[in-house]
Amino acid sequence: MSDSTSAAQPTAASAGPKSGRRFEGQVAVITGASRGIGLGVARRLNAEGATVVLTARKPEALNEAVATFPEGTALAIAGKADDPAHRAEVFDTIAQKFGRLDVLVANAGINPVYGPLVDIELDAARKIFDVNVLGTLAWVQDAVHHEGLKFRENKGRVVTLSSVAGQVPSEGIGFYGISKAAVSHLTKTLAVELGPDIRVNAVAPAVVKTKFATALYEGREEQVASAYPVKRLGTPEDIAGAVAYLASDDADWITAQVLTADGGVVTAGGSA
């Protein structure tokens, strides 16, 4: 475990929103948060008052990310998202330090292969499914079952990261899209099963300008963006705003939904 800062203890007395700080006094964990969408989400929730726990595989990158947060408001715990021991360490640490969990953002995902489905190596497909789908489910299971987090009592909120590739076939990333279609259905099913205590929603982005998605737009960004009605690709901040909304009390009557954040590209006939 890497504890880059000593995060402050949230208190029940400060749990209400103040001056637009919708997550004041709350604790949020964001997986895959050393860069890109995950880091953008962590920054947005933190800016609105949350103490944030960031997880990712590489401790150096994770520590660098956490160092950019105000002192005492962020914690780094490195490990693989699909590793049960890592999840246990994350949730045990949160329980010991804060005694509560309010928001879980299951962002970690992989896509190690590109190409048609008929040529994909099945071991690679299994790994994608393990991390993107079973990993997402495992984070939710462990959060719900960990008595020290009081996730149900705190009316916990889960936001998963799906993709428009799970809605329409997208060239070169077919199995990734299949895994994200599963994440969308997983999200809806969890919402039905966990209500009314816990709300579960997903955000499904199109191409967002991150290192993860570089292969989808590098060297031809203007061409790719031309298919989008808004004429630009997404940014981590775009997705962070959507996640923050779904995780906030502003969305208290919204669950089992997949919010498409795609600049209109799917409606316009495009894909990821």
Score class of each variant (00 low, 15 high):
L75I: 06
A50Y: 07
K80L: 13
A268V: 05
V168I: 07
N111H: 11
I128R: 14
V144G: 08
E171Y: 12
K150C: 10
R199A: 09
A213V: 08
Y228H: 07
L246C: 04
L137W: 13
P116V: 05
G20P: 11
A106R: 01
L134M: 15
A88Y: 00
G234M: 03
I239K: 00
A13G: 13
E24T: 09
L161C: 02
T189Q: 13
L190R: 02
F175P: 13
D142Q: 14
Q257H: 10
G195S: 12
P17M: 09
R152P: 07
G195E: 09
T214Y: 14
V118I: 14
A268E: 04
P236D: 02
T255P: 09
A106S: 11
R43P: 02
I37P: 03
P236T: 03
N154F: 03
E171A: 15
G36P: 05
V113Q: 15
G40M: 04
A181P: 06
N46L: 01
A202K: 01
N154E: 06
T136R: 00
L233H: 05
V183M: 08
M1K: 01
N154V: 04
S271I: 04
S184E: 08
N154K: 10
I198Y: 08
E121G: 15
F69R: 08
T210C: 03
P169H: 07
D238T: 02
L45C: 03
S34G: 05
S170D: 08
T31R: 02
E60A: 13
A74Q: 05
V144Y: 10
T31E: 03
A81G: 14
L246H: 03
R44K: 10
R35Y: 09
K155E: 12
S14T: 14
Y228T: 06
D119I: 10
D249I: 06
G115D: 11
A247N: 01
A13F: 10
H86Q: 00
V203S: 03
S14P: 04
N111L: 06
